[in-house]
Each structure stands twice: as structure tokens, then as C-alpha cells.
């Protein structure tokens, strides 16, 4: 496993002010695999996810201890530019959050600002990203329409396309289907299965079946601690820790 690890945390503690939200989290994330983070609400799943692309930097008064190594380099080292990290580690949020711009401009927004100005190149990139997000056929004739006119499920796939347009190495997804209907959810789950050939995916989900369906590895968190981390199959069929078993069988959470 060690060979293909793309990002790993080492003894990470994380504080919001004086409140410790994560305690001693050590985890390896394998390349081109889907890793699911599960656990009851408030256990720190989102916090960990946002640590991986330095989104927690945006919150005043937070502190990280320990190391997060991306391709062997600590992303919290003083000489690391968080903007660069976020280009390589994309994120999809719980609620679809397209910009109030056209569909095309949503997808090309970040690539343009990162220096791609050639129109043909941007068009190719937009098509490629929208195809990868399995949205192309639905929007190819309405690219100049406002993204706000799309359905929730389409908006979320647009947000995925927007993240993919930056060609990240890792895609972080924080409960990407929790605001969506079952059909949209199924579409996005299929999509995740496709995407892992090209990207490493780390997904937070409160939906046990979803974790079982889409992921190869699953980490179970409880009150800021990583309780158990193993093959998804092992976690769901034969968990080693009693707390994990209680959670996945629905006895709490």
C-alpha cells in the first residue's frame, strides 16, 4: 500500500480556537482509489477533508499540529502556497454552489485565471470536463445559459466538472449527494466509479450504503478520532472495533 500513497496525515491534531476537533489522526490515502470517511455528525469528517486542501486556513483562530504530506511534502510547511495546493487538490461541497455565471464560464473560470486564454483550448477543456462529469449531453446546447437554471443534481455535476477543469490530482467530496434526489445520487455514484481511474477521491458521506458502494477504503471517525481504517469490505462485514460495528449497524449516529 505504501507505494501508491498520494497523501497522508501524520498525528494530526486540529483546533478551532481552544476546541480540539481532531485528535492524532494518522491516515494514508491511496492513489486512484476512493476512500470514504464515515462517522456521526460532528465527528470531524469535514474538518479533516478541509485540512487536506487547506480550506480551514480561511477560518480565523484555527491551528494544525502534526503533518499532512502530499507527495512527500508537508502542505503546512511555511513555504507552501495554499493556492497551489488547492489547484492540485480540488473540492466538491455538500450543497451545489455554482457561480451566478453561465455554464461555460463556471467550468472555465479557474482555468482562465490560471492563465489559459486560448478560446479553442478553453472550449476543449470545458467539453472534456463536462463529459467527465457526465453532464455534457444535457448542457452542450445551453452552455451560455446561467448555471442557476440547472437542477440540483446537474448543478452538483457542474461543480464536479468545474473542479475537474483544473485537472487536480485529488478530488475531495464532502457529502456531495446529501442535497440530491436518489436519481441524481445514483448518477454521481456512477461518476465517482469512473473518475477514480484518473483521480484520487476522498469522500465524506453519512450514507453507509454509499460508502459501501463507491469506496475501496473506509475510515470511521468518532469524536475527532480515527477509530478504524481498513478495506471497505472489511469495515462493513467484519469490523474490528465494537464502536464501528455499532455505527454501521445503525445502533447510534
Amino acid at each position: 500500500m505504501e507505494n501508491n500513497v498520494i497523501i497522508k496525515t501524520r498525528n494530526v491534531d486540529f483546533y478551532y480556537g481552544s476546541f480540539r476537533a481532531l485528535t492524532d489522526v494518522t491516515m494514508d490515502f491511496e492513489q486512484n482509489r476512493v476512500t470514504a470517511l464515515i462517522g456521526p455528525s460532528g465527528c470531524g469528517k469535514s474538518t479533516l477533508l478541509r485540512l487536506l486542501n487547506r480550506m480551514n486556513d480561511l477560518i480565523d483562530g484555527t491551528r494544525v499540529e502534526g503533518e499532512i504530506l502530499f507527495e512527500g511534502r508537508n502542505i503546512y510547511a511555511p513555504d507552501v502556497d495554499p493556492v497551489e495546493i488547492r489547484r492540485r487538490i480540488g473540492m466538491v461541497f455538500q450543497k451545489p454552489n455554482p457561480f451566478p455565471k453561465s455554464i461555460f464560464n463556471n467550468v472555465t473560470y479557474a482555468p482562465k485565471l490560471s492563465g489559459i486564454t486560448n478560446k479553442a483550448e478553453l472550449e476543449t477543456l470545458a467539453e472534456q470536463s463536462l463529459r467527465q462529469a457526465v453532464l455534457w449531453d444535457e448542457v452542450k446546447d445551453i452552455l451560455s445559459r446561467s448555471a442557476m437554471t440547472l437542477s440540483g443534481g446537474q448543478q452538483q455535476r457542474l461543480c464536479i466538472a468545474r473542479a475537474l477543469a483544473m485537472k487536480p490530482d485529488i478530488l475531495l467530496m464532502d457529502e456531495p449527494t446529501s442535497a440530491l434526489d436518489p436519481i441524481s445520487t445514483a448518477k454521481i455514484e456512477e461518476l465517482i466509479d469512473e473518475l477514480k481511474r484518473l483521480y484520487t477521491i476522498i469522500i465524506v458521506t453519512h450514507n453507509m450504503q454509499q460508502a459501501a458502494r463507491v469506496s475501496e477504503y473506509t475510515g470511521f471517525f468518532y469524536i475527532g478520532k480515527l477509530i478504524e481504517f481498513n478495506n471497505t469490505e472489511k469495515i462493513f462485514t467484519n469490523p474490528a472495533v465494537k464502536q464501528t460495528e455499532d455505527y454501521i449497524t445503525g445502533r447510534f449516529g
Binding site: 480550506m55 480561511l58 488547492r86 461541497f93 455554482p98 473560470y109 483544473m166
Partner: peptide, 13 residues
Amino acid sequence: QTFREASLALGVS
């Protein structure tokens, strides 16, 4: 705030 987060998460300054 979600607009800001969405943009920053794309590696936009």
C-alpha cells in the same frame, strides 16, 4: 460565503 469558498477551493487567489 459559499461563493468565496467555491472560488478559493479551485486554487483561485
